[in-house]
Design a protein around this nucleic acid. Sequence first.
DNA 1: TCCATATTTCCAATAATATAGAAATATAAA
DNA 2: TTTATATTTCTATATTATTGGAAATATGGA
Lengths: 113, 113
Amino acid sequence: MEIEKAVSALSALSQESRLTVFRYLVQAGLEGVPAGRIGAHLGLPLSTLSFHLSQLKHAGLVKCRREGRTLYYSAHYAAMNELMGYLTENCCQGISEKRKVSSRPRKVRALKK
Amino acid sequence: MEIEKAVSALSALSQESRLTVFRYLVQAGLEGVPAGRIGAHLGLPLSTLSFHLSQLKHAGLVKCRREGRTLYYSAHYAAMNELMGYLTENCCQGISEKRKVSSRPRKVRALKK
DNA sequence: TCCATATTTCCAATAATATAGAAATATAAA
DNA sequence: TTTATATTTCTATATTATTGGAAATATGGA
């Protein structure tokens, strides 16, 4: 991962509403949550929420899929893993060259239903 | 770690100059690097650098110590570990309750000289 | 076709952040 | 005590982000 992508992911997560949305989506699992339900959960006006979701989407941290008139948003686990990997490699020891194996971050994934 | 602190750390890292500074300090180790040397390394005006260093310090991600007229800045490894822990617990699976042991993030530290 | 639902886009106001020169502060050394 | 060095704080400006109401878009059903 290159630094611009890391900055973009970090920016997306560096705002309380968005971090809360992302945490919620991570918990919610692969099937995702309709935008309206997220808004109700957080008590945010839908236009504000939509703005935040688009920031997260732009950063690649969430995906969405339409089902009828409903848009289901879900966490993009692989993207979060990439970010964690970048931080581990670049911001935790600076010894990734010397300890390549042990510095590979633990993989994480969604829970099976 | 509570969400406000996580947001503050993420905000500090969500800007390219600051992320670069932090990466550099992580590599540089516990003894730290004089502000002037950081500025030379990044090609930033010192007043701009000073602004960014104060953001990082405010977020708790760097420390500094004076030696004569020189201020040595260094990465605060424990704070970064805390942030990684928060992200692992809250943004990677949402199953921290069920898998408490394995979800504890790997500890990282500075290299011995 | 017309209406209801889910959500986004548009817009304007406000707030927060970033930048860098100039002045100020802290320390050391002559 | 004067001068030089290291760094910060001040200040103004420019840029970017956040907010939420209103209008627009997309879809499905009567």
